[in-house]
């Protein structure tokens, strides 16, 4: 899932300072699962904003909505009937949702309530960790199912750097060395010979270096 984290309340309050009528839009997708922008978070944030404003003697009207997804036009369109009555949209979706809102509703600003942090999963309840950097050219079959791009702090492709010690990465003793994890796993799988194969340099134009990416499926297009 796309993992996000709510922006500090102070920042959100400053962002919405000019407005008195606001749509607070959550998303039932990834950000609901990582407890950053689902229905519950919308409810909570709306209450926090209203409380802050009441305390300042300047009330605010908030329309709470949580869309199925904010990354699909059909759901983004669902707020069209009432969007004209509001001055801004504060979106609790990931950066994609905020931008889709902005593209669909040109008259009022779409504001981000979250910092979109990474693509990852839940390590345990309440803890989310990064697992994928969307490099566009997966090598997990070569590396024992552990991503060298994400888990190695330098995104090395062919074994550890000189900073790996006791299984830890040199950037922080709390961070396991990605390449140690890969080696241990290859050993576990009886695939240590994989380690000798040189992984050629990746084509980074398929990653963020190639400009905004696009996936097209002719068979699905209308």
């Amino acid at each position: 899932m796309v993992v996000g984290e709510q922006k500090p309340l102070e920042e959100i309050l400053e962002m919405i300072e000019p407005y008195d009528r606001l749509i607070l839009a959550g998303c039932k997708g990834c950000v609901a699962v990582c407890a950053a922008g689902g229905e519950r978070e919308v409810r909570f944030l709306a209450s926090a904003i209203k409380t802050a404003r009441k305390a300042q003697g300047r009330e605010i009207e908030i329309r709470e909505v949580t869309l199925e997804r904010q990354c699909d036009p059909e759901y983004v369109e669902q707020i069209r009937p009432f969007v004209g009555q509001y001055q801004a949209i504060l979106s609790l979706a990931c950066g994609v949702g905020v931008q889709f809102m902005a593209e669909h509703y040109r008259q009022i600003p779409a504001l981000p309530g979250l910092n979109t942090t990474f693509v990852g999963g839940a390590e345990r309840q309440g803890v989310w960790v990064e697992r994928c950097q969307c490099c566009g050219q997966c090598v997990l079959h070569l590396t024992g199912g552990i991503c060298p791009i994400t888990r190695c702090s330098k995104s090395l492709l062919n074994g550890p750097c000189g900073g790996s010690s006791n299984g830890r990465c040199e950037i922080d003793p709390e961070v396991p060395c990605g390449w140690q994890l890969i080696l241990d796993r290859l050993k576990e799988l009886g695939q240590l010979e994989r380690y000798l194969e040189i992984i050629p340099p990746k084509d980074w134009s398929l990653s963020r270096d190639g400009g905004p990416r696009k996936v097209q499926r002719e068979d699905l297009m209308r």
Partner: peptide, 11 residues
Amino acid sequence: PNPVKTGRGKE
């Protein structure tokens, strides 16, 4: 009192 009732600003 809770400032929500008085609107007196941050406490």
